[in-house]
Every structure is written in structure tokens, then in C-alpha cells.
Amino acid sequence: MSAHTIRMRPRTRPGRQRGVISTFIAIIVLLITLMAAVALMRSVDTSSSIAGRLGFKQQVTQEAELAYQDAVSGAAAYLGPAGEADKADIGYYATPQAADTRGIPTTLIAKAAGKQLKAPNTADDIRYTIERLCPNAGPALTVAPNACLVPAATINGGSTTGNQGGFGSGAQAAYRLTVRVEGPKNAVSYVQTIMR
């Protein structure tokens, strides 16, 4: 009898192939987890930023109230005949000043004008201007050439009711108060109101 030698091929180990596939799947899962973590961090940062801005807006409103109270307490310096000319040292102007598209005086935006206050509990910079809503300096009138915006005036038949020839002892023009508050990280906010 003849002896045949049979050569057998070595078997490949299936465990080695499974290890490569498992490593590849683990890397994919790790990358997906990493992207989810980055998205979560961005979401938290955005939420913190929004909360900080809302807090600053609330603080600005309260500090604008300080400017309003200061403007009202110093009203004798610009009401009536005293307000017929500009008084830049107290942030008062007898006519509306040059403004941007939002109606904010450009000198206030540049911090070149306005009365400055300091908030009692913060380091925020508060500045404000008061503008008399009359087209020209001088006596305020309800008719041309210096027809002012008058508070609580009503229009009946093309004329304003009340004093037709000019302001009497009780009448006055309307005033626009614009407040600029600069807070932390150079955040700037403006508040504007009409006073009478």
C-alpha cells in the first residue's frame, strides 16, 4: 500500500476577524458619543449665555429707572424758559439731536455727550440725554415755526385743543429721555421714553 501524505492547510482563526470588526464598531460608537458630548456642551453654553443676557436686560431696566429719577429730580434746570437753550453739561438739548436709524442720539452712542451716573451696586456706566421735542431752540410754541410735540395734545379739526398761541404757565413740550447702560463685557443697552 502506498502512503499518501495529506497536507492540511492551517485554519484561520475567526476570533481575529471579529476583533477587528469589534474595534471598528467601538471607534464609531466613541466618535458618536464624542459628538453628542460636544453638542451638549454647546447647548449648555448657549443656555448660560441666554440666561446671562436676560439678567443683564433686567438689570439695565432697573438702572434706566435711576436715570429717569435723576432726570425728573433735575427737571427745574430744563423745564419752561430754562430749557430754551442747550445745556450739554447736564445732558439736555433744546432740540432733537442727530440720531441713528433706531432714534438713539449718535453723541450718546459715542459717549461724547450725556450726563453720567454710576449704579450703586454695580460698575455699570450709565449715561443719558434729554431732548426737548421742538424743531428749534427758543420759546416752545404749538404753532409754526417752533411747533413742539406737546404731551396729551389732541387733534380736533386740524388744530390742537388748549392754548393756541403758545405755552402758558402750565403747558410744556414733551421730552425724550435716552439712557445708555454699558455693563460687563462691554454689553451695551439703550432705553428710551417720552417724558412730559
Score class of each variant (00 low, 15 high):
residue 109 I to F: 11
residue 8 M to T: 13
residue 149 L to R: 07
residue 85 A to V: 15
residue 14 P to D: 01
residue 66 L to W: 00
residue 87 K to N: 15
residue 87 K to D: 13
residue 98 A to Q: 02
residue 117 L to V: 03
residue 14 P to F: 06
residue 16 R to D: 11
residue 167 F to V: 00
residue 113 A to P: 02
residue 147 A to Y: 03
residue 180 R to L: 09
residue 135 P to L: 02
residue 148 C to I: 03
residue 84 E to T: 15
residue 103 G to Q: 09
residue 103 G to R: 04
residue 74 G to C: 02
residue 120 P to V: 05
residue 111 K to W: 06
residue 153 A to R: 07
residue 189 S to P: 00
residue 123 A to G: 11
residue 149 L to E: 12
residue 35 M to Q: 10
residue 69 Q to W: 08
residue 42 R to G: 05
residue 98 A to E: 10
residue 93 Y to M: 07
residue 98 A to R: 06
residue 150 V to S: 02
residue 157 G to Y: 14
residue 102 R to N: 13
residue 71 A to H: 06
residue 154 T to E: 10
residue 145 P to R: 12
residue 163 N to F: 02
residue 8 M to E: 15
residue 4 H to S: 07
residue 62 Q to E: 15
residue 47 S to G: 14
residue 76 A to V: 13
residue 186 N to S: 11
residue 162 G to R: 09
residue 180 R to P: 05
residue 103 G to Y: 06
residue 117 L to Y: 01
residue 69 Q to M: 11
residue 196 R to Y: 10
residue 1 M to R: 11
residue 3 A to E: 15
residue 81 P to A: 12
residue 14 P to N: 12
residue 101 T to C: 11
residue 78 Y to G: 06
residue 88 A to M: 09
residue 115 K to H: 03
residue 133 L to P: 05
residue 44 V to F: 02
residue 51 A to H: 04
residue 175 Y to S: 02
residue 14 P to Q: 09
residue 11 R to M: 15
residue 112 A to T: 10
residue 85 A to E: 15
residue 153 A to C: 08
residue 23 T to R: 02
residue 139 P to S: 05
residue 182 E to I: 13
residue 106 T to N: 09
residue 180 R to H: 08
residue 161 T to D: 07
residue 15 G to T: 00
residue 44 V to T: 02
residue 63 E to P: 01
residue 43 S to L: 11
residue 57 K to L: 15
residue 127 R to D: 04
residue 174 A to Y: 07
residue 44 V to D: 08
residue 65 E to Y: 10
residue 122 T to R: 08
residue 102 R to H: 13
residue 134 C to K: 00
residue 69 Q to A: 14
